[in-house]
Amino acid sequence: MNVLEGMRWGEAQLLDKNIDNARFDADMLLAEVLKVSRDKLYFERDRQLSNEEENAFKHWIVRRSEHEPLQYILKSQEFMGLPFYVDERVLIPRSDSETLVETWLELVRQEEKQGRARIKVADLCTGSGVLAISMAYYYPKAEIVGSDLSSDALEVARVNAGNLGVSVNWREGDFAVSIRGECWDWIISNPPYVSMADYVQCAPEIFREPSMAFLGGQDGLKFYRRLAEEAKTLLKPEGKILLEIGWDQGEAVCGIFQKKGFATQVFPDLAGRDRVILAR
């Protein structure tokens, strides 16, 4: 087959298996096989695929047809304009989470104008490390720790930090356990916040990702309660917490922290949905 035939064949195969964004995914897989950008495919539409290229492409289409996420096949996902390695050991970064990093950067730069420059940050449930690494990349003056219960996830995070040339202190531990006994300017987290009821309704691709990265207890609020319970022992007097939340969890999460004496503020994502909560 030539490139154009490959694009059409791949799309048809994925559509037959009810894969969302079938054309985009087929194009991206073919582009990766050919080592070109997606927009170059049409310029090379008459090029014949070698036997090796055709076999590799067809193998990847089969994998995607079985609802394996595109990012796991390509081993990559962009986040905050940076390339990250991902595989089955970690949650695939979502663009929604960029709201957390962007909000943090804005708040920290405001504080910098008031004379606070060197800050100590803990990123809990760091996974592939995208939050911690993005913060370190765009604000290198911060001292950043990334913590996760999964040693496999931390291996991926270390690879990403090395690839992007940033320094993050990685720690293994259950949620806040690895940062106890220290005082932090910021605690950042995109914790598991999907309820059991919502999880069972998810797209098939979700079940290929680590379930521990999604499930936040029966109602999705387990980790917010855990952090609120001990947050005051972890923060400096002016310390703050910045957390990603589900679009419908703003009121509930604010209530959890307000009961522990925190003032809260909710920030929306680009779609206008509640996405990040600040507790101080």
Results as ranks from 00 to 15, higher is better:
His67Asp: 01
Arg64Ile: 05
Val177Lys: 14
Glu78Asn: 12
Leu164Asn: 03
Gly81Gln: 09
Asp248Val: 02
Glu111Ile: 03
Ser65Ala: 14
Asn190Glu: 06
Ala231Lys: 00
Tyr199His: 13
His67Val: 02
Lys75Pro: 00
Val145Leu: 13
Ser211Ile: 10
Asp16Gly: 15
Leu124Trp: 10
Trp104Met: 12
Ala271Trp: 04
Asn190Trp: 09
Asp148Gln: 01
Leu242Cys: 14
Arg8Val: 13
Ile245Gly: 12
Asp46Glu: 13
Gln218Lys: 12
Glu32Met: 09
Arg273His: 15
Ser150Asn: 09
Trp60Leu: 14
Leu4Ser: 15
Asp174Ile: 01
Ile179Ala: 08
Glu244His: 10
Gln249His: 08
Ala197Cys: 03
Ala271Tyr: 11
Val156Pro: 09
Gly10Cys: 06
Lys113Arg: 14
Asn169His: 14
Glu78Thr: 12
Lys17Glu: 12
Leu278Thr: 05
Val159Met: 11
Gly173Thr: 06
Leu131Gly: 06
Gln114Glu: 15
Leu41Met: 09
Trp170Thr: 00
Val130Arg: 07
Gln110Asp: 14
Cys125Lys: 11
Glu106His: 09
Ser151Ile: 05
Ser128Met: 09
Trp104Arg: 05
Gln249Leu: 03
Phe57Gly: 04
Leu278Trp: 04
Phe262Met: 07
Leu164Cys: 07
Ile119His: 04
Trp186Thr: 01
Val166Tyr: 11
Ile241Asp: 01
Leu91Ser: 10
Gln110Asn: 14
Ala132Gly: 11
